[in-house]
Deep mutational scan, measured.
Amino acid sequence: NARWTTEEQLLAVQAIRKYGRDFQAISDVIGNKSVVQVKNFFVNYRRRFNIDEVLQEWEAEHGK
């Protein structure tokens, strides 16, 4: 399903906090979204969920 429920959106943001840009890991956490759908989520929801800021926090924690 290409549509993202609110629950899936929140799950994705939590997974980004945990896995950074590991699209496969994020896809696995959500369970019903492909890697391509996760990559599209990054692009389409970047502003709404401040994904750049979430990634900066992840990179700071993981030394990337």
Rank of each mutant, 00 (worst) to 15 (best):
N1D: 13
N1S: 09
N1T: 15
A2R: 13
R3E: 14
R3A: 10
R3Q: 12
R3C: 10
R3Y: 08
R3D: 15
R3M: 14
R3F: 08
R3K: 13
W4K: 03
W4N: 01
T5E: 04
T5L: 03
T5F: 03
T5N: 13
T5Y: 04
T6Y: 12
T6N: 12
T6L: 14
T6F: 09
T6Q: 12
T6W: 07
E7G: 10
E7M: 12
E7F: 06
E7A: 15
E7S: 10
E7W: 04
E8Y: 03
E8C: 00
E8N: 02
E8W: 03
Q9V: 09
Q9N: 04
L10F: 06
L10K: 11
L10H: 04
L11R: 13
L11Q: 10
A12D: 00
A12Q: 00
V13E: 04
V13K: 03
V13S: 04
V13C: 07
Q14N: 15
Q14L: 05
Q14A: 13
A15C: 12
A15T: 06
A15E: 01
I16L: 10
I16G: 01
I16D: 00
I16M: 07
R17H: 04
R17G: 06
R17M: 05
R17P: 07
R17T: 07
R17I: 02
R17L: 02
K18I: 07
K18N: 13
K18G: 02
K18Y: 03
Y19Q: 06
Y19H: 10
Y19D: 05
Y19K: 06
Y19P: 02
Y19T: 04
Y19L: 06
Y19C: 04
G20C: 01
G20E: 03
G20R: 02
G20V: 02
G20T: 00
R21K: 15
R21H: 08
R21G: 08
R21Q: 09
D22F: 02
D22R: 03
D22L: 01
D22A: 02
D22V: 01
D22K: 07
F23L: 13
Q24H: 05
Q24Y: 04
Q24R: 09
I26A: 02
I26K: 01
S27W: 04
S27I: 08
S27M: 02
S27A: 13
S27P: 02
D28A: 11
D28F: 04
D28E: 14
D28T: 13
V29S: 15
V29Y: 15
V29N: 05
V29G: 01
V29C: 09
V29Q: 10
I30W: 03
G31A: 07
G31S: 07
G31F: 00
N32P: 02
N32G: 09
N32Q: 08
N32Y: 05
N32L: 03
N32T: 15
N32K: 09
N32A: 06
K33R: 08
K33A: 02
K33W: 09
K33N: 06
K33M: 00
S34T: 13
S34E: 07
V35A: 11
V36W: 12
V36N: 15
V36G: 13
V36F: 12
V36E: 15
Q37D: 15
Q37N: 05
Q37C: 06
V38H: 01
V38Y: 01
V38K: 00
V38P: 01
V38R: 01
K39P: 04
N40P: 01
N40C: 11
N40M: 12
N40F: 06
N40A: 15
N40E: 15
F41L: 02
F41H: 01
F42D: 02
F42G: 03
V43H: 07
V43T: 13
V43N: 05
V43Q: 14
N44D: 13
N44L: 10
Y45C: 15
R46S: 13
R46D: 07
R46W: 12
R47K: 15
R47Y: 12
R48Q: 15
R48W: 03
R48L: 12
R48V: 13
F49W: 15
F49H: 10
F49C: 14
N50Y: 05
I51M: 09
D52N: 07
D52I: 03
D52K: 06
E53G: 14
E53M: 12
E53Q: 14
E53V: 10
V54F: 05
V54A: 12
V54H: 07
L55V: 11
Q56I: 09
Q56E: 14
Q56S: 13
Q56V: 06
W58S: 06
W58L: 08
W58H: 15
W58D: 09
W58G: 08
A60P: 08
A60D: 08
E61H: 10
E61Y: 01
E61A: 08
E61M: 09
E61K: 09
H62Q: 14
H62V: 11
H62G: 11
H62Y: 10
K64T: 14
K64H: 15
K64Y: 05
